[in-house]
């Protein structure tokens, strides 16, 4: 047997059947409530209240719907008025996340105001608070061609980062194709890299769900199709709001790697898990060509 054949044989043995399913005897988790809430300038608040569940519980549609808490009392305050929110089912129609959320049509986000929420579920009370920062406006957005591809383009944006501390999230929505603004993956950004400087970045199109086969089969993954009209939302945040999304995104994308210590998510609410934060947003539209 030649040495290279022997090597391949050994490599084959090494790589085959290295992985097997095991039973982990994990205790039932403590019951916790999860808040996913935000208020954006000129928009009504969105506050979803869900429960945690055991890690291995199989997921089906009933399971997901059952996670939503429908009997919470949710209040939002802008420092001057406090209003009670109602449960909205609007997202159920188009299947957008969060399927059920609390909102109000008596309050829209305003710049520089401090917002706080109070969520009461039975004997549990969860609170959170955040400040609406200033808006940041893009200078320009444009398309760049992709090598050997006439139908897809890269989308670029540029702007001058203001001197004060800023934290960004970017979202995109393809008109009449996306049901909501999809966050650009791994683009929760601290301006430490480009503070007070001109900054340009290739805005990779976000994915709706990382656990979806259609995401990875999508030939347009990360790119934009010629002819689409795309709205870019640039959201400025406070540090605490940023810290939540930065750590949550890290956990969602790489958290389960066995080689690193798990990310400690920086929850911004007290009495539960999750976030309540303000987005100071600006919107720009481009037709991909």
């Amino acid at each position: 047997m030649r040495i290279d054949k022997l090597f391949f044989l050994i490599l084959f043995i090494t790589l085959s059947s290295c992985s097997k399913e095991i039973e982990l005897d994990l205790p039932e988790p403590d019951k916790k409530y999860v808040i996913e809430g935000y208020i954006e300038n000129d928009h009504y608040p969105v506050i979803a209240v869900t429960r945690n569940s055991s890690y291995f519980a199989p997921i089906d549609s009933t399971y997901v719907m059952n996670l939503f808490v429908l009997d919470a009392k949710v209040y939002i305050s802008n420092g001057e008025n406090e209003v009670e929110c109602f449960l909205s089912t609007n997202n159920l129609i188009n299947g957008a996340w969060p399927y059920l959320y609390y909102t109000t049509n008596q309050m829209v986000g305003e710049l520089d105001k401090i917002y706080s929420i109070k969520v009461i579920i039975g004997s549990d009370t969860i609170t959170g608070s955040d400040t609406m920062p200033s808006q940041v406006f893009l200078d320009s957005l444009w398309c760049e061609p992709i090598k050997d591809n006439d139908t897809l383009k890269d989308l670029w944006i540029s702007y001058i980062d203001p001197p004060e501390k800023n934290f960004y999230r970017f979202f995109t929505k393809r008109q009449s194709r996306d049901n909501y603004f999809v966050p650009s993956a791994l683009f929760v950004l601290d301006d430490i890299y480009f503070n007070n400087q001109f900054f340009k970045v290739n805005l990779i199109r976000g994915i709706e769900n990382i656990y979806s086969d259609s995401t990875y089969q999508d030939p347009e993954l990360g790119k934009y199709k010629v002819g689409d009209t795309v709205i870019v939302k640039t959201a400025n945040m406070t540090r605490q709001h940023y810290n939540f999304w930065r750590t949550a995104e890290q956990e969602i994308y790489i958290g389960s790697s066995p080689f690193i210590n798990p990310v400690r998510i920086r929850h911004t609410v007290k009495g539960g898990l999750g976030v309540f934060g303000c987005y100071a947003s600006t919107y720009d539209t481009i037709v991909i060509n």
């Binding site: 988790p29 945690n52 996670l67 949550a248 898990l273």
Partner: peptide, 14 residues
Amino acid sequence: PVSRYFIEGNIVTE
């Protein structure tokens, strides 16, 4: 992992 929950429709692990 001891539990999980959802944020923006994605699974987050505790």
